[in-house]
Design a protein around this nucleic acid. Structure first.
Lengths: 123, 123
DNA sequence: CTAAACGCTCACATCGATGTCATGGGCAAG
DNA sequence: CTTGCCCATGACATCGATGTGAGCGTTTAG
């Protein structure tokens, strides 16, 4: 399939797909006229990229983790593993931050409700 | 206390503290010469701001949620409550995204470990 | 008094993923 | 052939929090 279809099936814009390729996250074969050709596997890969990007990972980190540009080497795999562990730690601490923020927010909501209840009583 | 001390106690840069004020997240009294003066309460407030910013909220959302610029009004409180609920929903779905990403990452780590184990066997 | 350390405002720079526009080629249906 | 749609590349714009530096006043310790 060409880029338009991949875009439609993944929800990623054509612009983004080209950007992913430029950053080494995605490889495509090219038609004789230079147009990008994708297969079913690419749909999965883009989904994974989107998952990781949505989690705030940089394209550089993703590129280091996801084998795609060249054949996997033991050295590369070791590096990838290091990056993965690093990202996992970061993810976990981000989740903790979000959870803390949600608790703080819940507290604020409670305070606000009380204020509104008092205002209603006064009226 | 002046801005330097508040910065030291919260970890927020002076630049950020001035920015928070400009965005309506923080109010300060001014000394006759125009320097910002803070008290203990401001330390707490900055901590809350940091919690929310770390969770990816915008200063605008925070400004709408946290009463600070003017006296609380019932109308404002209602608006604040709406924003809070909105942000809470967003937070929860972000947490879900991060959790999904972590699971995908765990899967990738597993695959990578297997690859390395096989490579070690072959050697 | 003086110098160092601090504060003020204003303005410009940064980062990263994505949008958008310009210019031009490729291909299928009328 | 032409019209219309898809694609390619490249350049520039965007957003938001923060960094940075200039130019100038304030405070405080020696």
């Amino acid at each position: 399939m060409r880029i338009g279809e991949l875009s439609a099936r993944t929800g990623a814009s054509r612009r983004s797909l080209r950007y992913y390729e430029q950053q080494g996250l995605l490889v495509s074969t090219r038609s004789p006229s230079g147009q990008r050709c994708y297969n079913e596997d690419h749909v999965q890969r883009v989904a994974l990229i989107q998952t990781f990007l949505a989690a705030g990972m940089s394209t550089m980190s993703i590129a280091q983790m996801v084998p795609c540009m060249s054949e996997p080497t033991t050295a590369k795999a070791l590096h990838a593993l290091a990056v993965m562990n690093h990202e996992r730690t970061r993810l976990t601490s981000t989740i903790d931050s979000l959870t803390a923020a949600r608790e703080a927010l819940d507290h604020l909501i409670e305070v606000n409700r009380s204020f509104l209840a008092n205002a209603a009583d006064a009226a």
